[in-house]
Design a binder for these strands. Structure first.
Length: 534
DNA sequence: ACCACCGCAA
């Protein structure tokens, strides 16, 4: 009888079927077994896994006799509910109230909580306690430590633990690979995957998504193709949403459409993660209608769905559309988050809706209790400075509760240039120069500012500093796709096979533009060029 | 009986 209950509880936990779980719980109570043996712990575990934290907690608190298994179950429930702070804050009661000792299961949950918080020092303390415990060789705890160090970007430490694992399974292998990939150590990540004895969907997904997160979309795509060739069955949609993200970053519309087909073929259209990624992909590829189409077909839109379409509209200069989408979203009862507001203020900034932008910034704080991040201040600053409210912008940069970073100063500086305020421009340039920026484009901006103010000695100072820093500037490029071929164009390139045709077209376009009253802005070209060449 | 690895928006 009881073993039957145990079996069924485990099945509910595995399938997250809370309906069945509650029914079983009722039967267990009716049979008078709800405090019998290990059944209470199993009930706690079942409720936790089914996402019913309150029920789990209730049973946990009612338990007359708690053991480490009860604790492991409730701590896991907190982790599962994405409340790692709670995991760590109730854990000390295990000693203080129940007088119990940690076991290896508890260690693993604590490490996991630390890794989702990237709590470096706390995690290291747990690691130390683990080494001193009576089971310092537990491979599962070591796996969780690999993940912890990798998430804290301490790859050397992660690797050290990884190497100490005797029986390496796919979990620790995946954690290590993902750690390398998302920290930009792409070649090491790929090499590690190649060394993996048995690669499953998890490992491939971890590597591919890590590569996308670190910006290596090309490698991500290649590996996705390789994974397909290996015949790995795509039994969950994780990797698909990553690879849609890669197409979005590459603005590769045809590729994105192919992936979309694959998604339909595999039956993952209804995954909200996948749909959100598709909305973003179509928007980034400038097919805003397709983005809208996918968005409209999402059954249960979440904040990310709305934010994706709002940002998409904003990026295409459709500020009014973005704002009315926002109103619609609020009407459905969803709460916008900080990313939504980045999109909204960005939208206002790009069409000069200054008052609306200011209003949204305040509303974010007052109505939604969101603390503005540096990014929000940067958006607001952009809004003010683009529209020529330079003094207000400078005041903001000085009074905001963040140390402005280089791009922030650069945004203000470029607005000074735009609005011809060279006095403020020079002031800000001096400030920025003293920060010794790393980005070559900032030096160009600095040089242009000083040149605009006729401060030629400063221009040469900037040039010298640039020379010392030995920048290797990547040439700008763009591309078009012709059938299956991609044709890449680099700035200043002179050897394209269709060169004459292209130059002819450019000349024609230039003439058309001038006819319609366009006056090219050559003020930023400061080399000694002939007028026409500028 | 209880633990660890992968997904979307800036």
């Amino acid at each position: 009888m009881t073993s039957n209950f145990l079996h069924q509880l485990r099945a509910c936990a595995k399938s997250k079927n809370h309906f069945m779980g509650k029914k079983l719980h009722a039967q267990i109570i009716k049979a008078g077994l709800d405090q019998w043996g290990i059944l209470p712990n199993n009930l706690i575990d079942m409720y936790g896994k089914c996402g019913l934290l309150q029920e789990a907690l209730h049973l946990f608190e009612e338990l007359p006799q708690r053991d480490p298994v009860s604790w492991a179950s409730i701590l896991t429930a907190y982790n599962q509910a994405n409340l790692p702070h709670q995991t760590l804050s109730i854990f000390p009661n295990m000693f203080a109230i129940d007088g119990l000792q940690s076991d290896n299961f508890i260690f693993a949950t604590l490490v996991k909580a630390c890794s989702s918080l990237a709590a470096v020092n706390l995690g290291k303390q747990v690691h130390a306690q683990f080494i001193l415990s009576s089971f310092p060789d537990d491979d599962v705890v070591k796996s969780s430590l690999v993940d912890f160090y990798a998430k804290c970007r301490l790859l050397g430490d992660a690797r050290q633990v990884f190497d100490s694992i005797f029986w390496k399974n796919s979990v620790c292998w995946t954690a290590m690979t993902y750690g390398y990939a998302r920290n930009g150590r792409n070649l090491e990540a790929i090499e590690l995957l190649r060394m993996m004895p048995v690669k499953d969907l998890f490992s491939w997904t971890a590597l591919i998504s890590g590569l996308v997160q670190s910006g290596d979309d090309i490698h991500a795509l290649r590996l996705f193709i390789e994974m397909r060739k290996e015949g790995i069955e795509i039994r969950d949609p994780f990797v698909l949403s990553s690879i849609v993200g890669a197409s979005a970053n590459l603005a590769a519309l045809d590729l994105g459409k192919q992936i979309h087909c694959l998604i339909v073929a595999f039956g993952y259209e209804s995954s909200v993660f996948v749909s959100n990624a598709l909305v973003d992909m179509y928007a980034k590829c400038s097919d805003i209608l397709a983005a809208r189409d996918v968005f409209n077909k999402i059954d249960k839109r979440d904040v990310v769905s709305w934010t994706s379409i709002i940002v998409g509209a904003a990026q295409h200069g459709q500020a009014e559309e973005a704002l009315s989408l926002f109103d619609e979203m609020v009407l459905t009862g969803l709460k916008p988050n900080k990313v939504t507001f980045v999109g909204l203020i960005y939208a206002c900034s790009h069409v000069g809706l200054i008052d609306k932008g200011r209003y949204l910034f305040d509303s974010m704080i007052k109505d939604y209790g969101i603390k503005p991040s540096l990014q929000h201040y940067t958006c607001l600053l952009d809004l003010l400075s683009r529209s020529g409210h330079l003094d207000e912008a400078e005041n903001l940069i000085k009074t905001m509760p963040f140390e402005p970073d280089e791009p922030t100063w650069a945004a203000l500086l470029s607005a000074c240039k735009q609005h011809g305020n060279s006095q403020m421009g020079v002031r800000i340039a001096n400030n920025l120069l003293s920060l010794k920026p790393q980005d070559p484009s900032i030096y160009i901006l600095l040089s242009n500012t000083y040149a605009g103010a006729g401060m030629w000695h400063m221009v040469s100072k900037v040039r010298k500093q640039m020379a010392v820093m030995d920048f290797k500037k990547e040439p700008g490029y763009s591309w078009v796709e012709l059938g299956k071929e991609g044709q890449v164009f680099y700035a200043g390139e002179a050897s394209n096979k269709n060169r004459d045709e292209i130059l002819g077209l450019l000349k024609h376009l230039d003439m058309e533009m001038r006819k319609r009253g366009y006056i090219p802005d050559t003020s930023l070209v400061l080399q000694d060029l002939e007028h026409l060449e500028k």
